[in-house]
């Protein structure tokens, strides 16, 4: 029997979020028909990219009045409506701010199980894996019910193309009365790339000493196409906003490359970045936990090392 699977297609001004391709890869299966659910009305523009990754139907979700502006409650109700119409019983998404705001609402409305930040999903057995106790254990969960929702941790599943021919559909939902209103969307301090989705992160800790010194990390990040993160000490000191905090009480990240600069490597910090593919530590203290549990360590003063790294990366990445 065909299983209909919905995937929330998250987009930004630059198009589909790059980390989404891993999510689509995780949702595929021989008996799966994949529905990409799009809210920004640009389905047609995404057709080439989505069909290359195996999406069969691309659905523009709108109301009679047009595009649905960001309202997590209204988006959740629209999704429930679309799931019902297309007989979709399984939903996938990227574990992002938007998904964390919309998927739990859908799960609650459907009284369905939801697992966010999954590192693996097996739909045949209805099990999924995710970390628990701040990354100290990996749990295999068994889900029961009629609908299932999964948020995939960004960058943990290798995106693999699998071309099909996609069809673009439109779906009109009825707007029910809003329980909450979104008054405005403001600009917020911090990076333009979501920390959790960034393929490369360079992070600074107490050793940064002040807000201004973070400039050297931003310069390096720009060359790498990386996002900048921080330890809690740097956040509590007010040098950078909380949205940049990596760790147990900050963001959990799983980039391909994590460069920890002047971060000692407390359990709480490791909790947020231990699944990075490659960890680089730059620290004056060779005994620091981060130096003991990284892939590559450089013993040295970050104020010496980072500018050299930035300069060398510039030439190394330019003559690729």
């Amino acid at each position: 029997m065909m299983t209909h699977i919905g995937i929330l297609i998250e987009t930004t001004a630059d198009g589909i979020k790059p980390a989404l391709n891993g999510v689509i890869t995780a949702a595929r299966g021989p008996e799966h028909k994949l529905y990409g659910l799009v809210f920004d009305g640009k389905s047609a523009a995404y057709k080439d990219e989505l069909q290359a990754f195996g999406i069969h139907k691309i659905v523009d979700i709108q109301s009679d009045e047009g595009l649905l502006n960001w309202n997590p409650d209204c988006w959740a109700r629209a999704m429930v409506d679309a799931l019902d119409y297309f007989e979709i019983d399984t939903l996938f998404g990227l574990t992002s701010f938007q998904t964390k705001d919309v998927f739990p609402r859908i799960a609650a409305l459907l009284d369905a199980p939801l697992l966010l930040d999954c590192i693996g999903v097996d739909l045949r057995t209805l099990t999924a894996e995710k970390s628990q106790f701040s990354g100290k254990t990996i749990a295999t969960f068994k889900l029961g019910g009629t609908h299932y929702l999964f948020g995939i941790r960004p960058n943990v599943i290798d995106p693999q193309p699998s071309p099909v021919t996609a069809e673009v559909l439109s779906f009109k939902t009825k707007i029910s009365e809003e329980s909450l209103t979104v008054e405005a969307v403001k600009e917020d301090a911090g990076d333009a790339i979501d920390l959790a989705e960034a393929p490369i992160i360079i992070a600074g800790g107490r050793a940064m000493q002040n807000a201004g010194n973070f400039r050297i990390l931003y310069e390096c990040a720009q060359v790498l196409g990386a996002a900048v993160g921080a330890s809690r000490v740097a956040v509590d000191a007010g040098w950078v906003p909380h949205s940049m905090q990596v760790g147990q009480t900050g963001t959990t990240v799983s980039p391909n490359l994590y460069i920890a600069c002047g971060i000692s490597g407390s359990v709480q910090h490791f909790a947020g970045m231990k699944t990075a593919q490659v960890i680089v530590a730059i620290n004056t203290d060779p005994q620091a936990a981060m130096m003991q549990n990284c892939d590559y360590g450089i013993v040295g003063d970050l104020f010496d090392v980072i500018p050299i790294l930035t300069r060398r990366l510039k030439s190394a990445l330019n003559d690729k």
């Binding site: 930004t12 938007q98 979104v182 008054e183 405005a184 917020d188 911090g190 989705e197």
Partner: peptide
């Protein structure tokens, strides 16, 4: 709500 964006609810 997103990187660099905050929703006022």
């Amino acid at each position: 709500m997103n990187a660099g964006e905050m929703a006022v609810i």
